[in-house]
């Protein structure tokens, strides 16, 4: 046994089981995807990817996920701030409720949001008066993705806010800075890396989301059809080649965007040194 491994037993067993499990469950299926993609006729591949229907689905998926993640960025920061800094009745309950989108099955969220935001729904009725339609429009997709991504920014920012040393705020106040100045010059830069992490998680979650979206979106090709649904439709038509092409390109773009966000946030992270 090597020195690095120390005295603990079970490395072989644990590692062996882990690799065997990942191999069966992950490696073989992903291998099948790659194999399938390699056998797709290149012309068919290109035609599927560049068809206007696919491009519209890509645009909607990335656009709606981006808008929803931005909404969650703003409201996530606000929620984290209010939950950590202020007192109000039933605060603990509200705090616990923030995790609801993690726990509630997406199909349930989908039908609930649709019924709520439809033209005759509790909320949709009032928005309709203002001329805003949510259900069965791209706005509905944004609403569903806002729901599923809601906990991420709150939960990444909360611990940072909690551990923020009071000393920096005291110093700022004693040097004559107002609250607004202190927030934007001192606190916000501290919270930003965590908020970006939460934003990225929410964005990634939104890209792949299916269950909560398909009810509220109305699924009109070219208008409100998200990419995962288009993949589903191709599979139902037994067009495995088309589904594979769309899935592969969608995954590639998603990973590329996430990598870029991660790289950017690493560069911008410059937390104040803590004593």
């Amino acid at each position: 046994m090597s020195g690095r491994r120390g005295v603990l037993p079970g490395f072989g067993l644990a590692m062996g089981f882990t690799l065997w499990y990942l191999g069966l469950l992950l490696l073989i299926p992903v291998g099948a995807l790659v194999l399938k993609a390699a056998t797709v006729d290149p012309e068919k591949f290109a035609a599927t990817i560049t068809s206007s229907r696919t491009l519209a689905a890509f645009r909607l998926s990335f656009g709606a996920a981006l808008v929803a993640a931005c909404i969650n960025g703003v409201f996530g920061l606000l929620l984290a701030w209010v939950l950590e800094r202020y007192d109000f009745p039933l605060k603990r309950l509200v705090d616990g409720l923030v995790d609801l989108p993690f726990a509630l099955p997406t199909a349930v969220a989908g039908i609930a949001l649709t019924t709520l935001y439809a033209g005759n729904g509790w909320v949709g009725r009032h928005l309709a008066v203002l001329g805003i339609e949510v259900a069965y429009t791209p706005l509905g997709v944004v609403a569903a993705l806002t729901f599923v991504g809601l906990p991420f920014v709150v939960r990444t920012v909360q611990p940072v806010l909690r551990d923020l040393p009071a000393a920096i705020e005291e110093a700022s106040a004693s040097l004559g800075a107002g609250r607004l100045q202190t927030f934007f010059r001192l606190i916000f830069p501290e919270l930003l890396p965590a908020a970006v992490t939460g934003f990225t998680l929410a964005f990634a979650r939104g890209l792949g989301e299916y269950g909560s979206v398909i009810f509220i979106s109305g699924n009109m090709p070219m208008k409100t059809e998200i990419t995962p649904l288009l993949i589903m439709i191709k599979l139902e038509e037994y067009d495995y080649a088309g589904a594979t092409a769309i899935a592969l390109v969608f995954l590639a773009i998603s990973f590329a965007i996430l990598l870029v966000i991660n790289a950017l946030s690493l560069r911008s992270a410059h937390p104040v040194r803590r004593g």
């Binding site: 299926p29 992903v30 995807l33 194999l35 792949g208 299916y210 037994y238 899935a247 995954l251 996430l258």
Partner: peptide
């Protein structure tokens, strides 16, 4: 962590590509 970053629909599709009627 990989399954977390893959759309559930694509996750399901992997098994259709393996075991579906026209799968591997």
């Amino acid at each position: 962590d990989l399954p977390f970053s893959v759309s559930p629909v694509i996750s399901g599709m992997l098994f259709v590509l393996l075991f579906g009627a026209q799968g591997l």
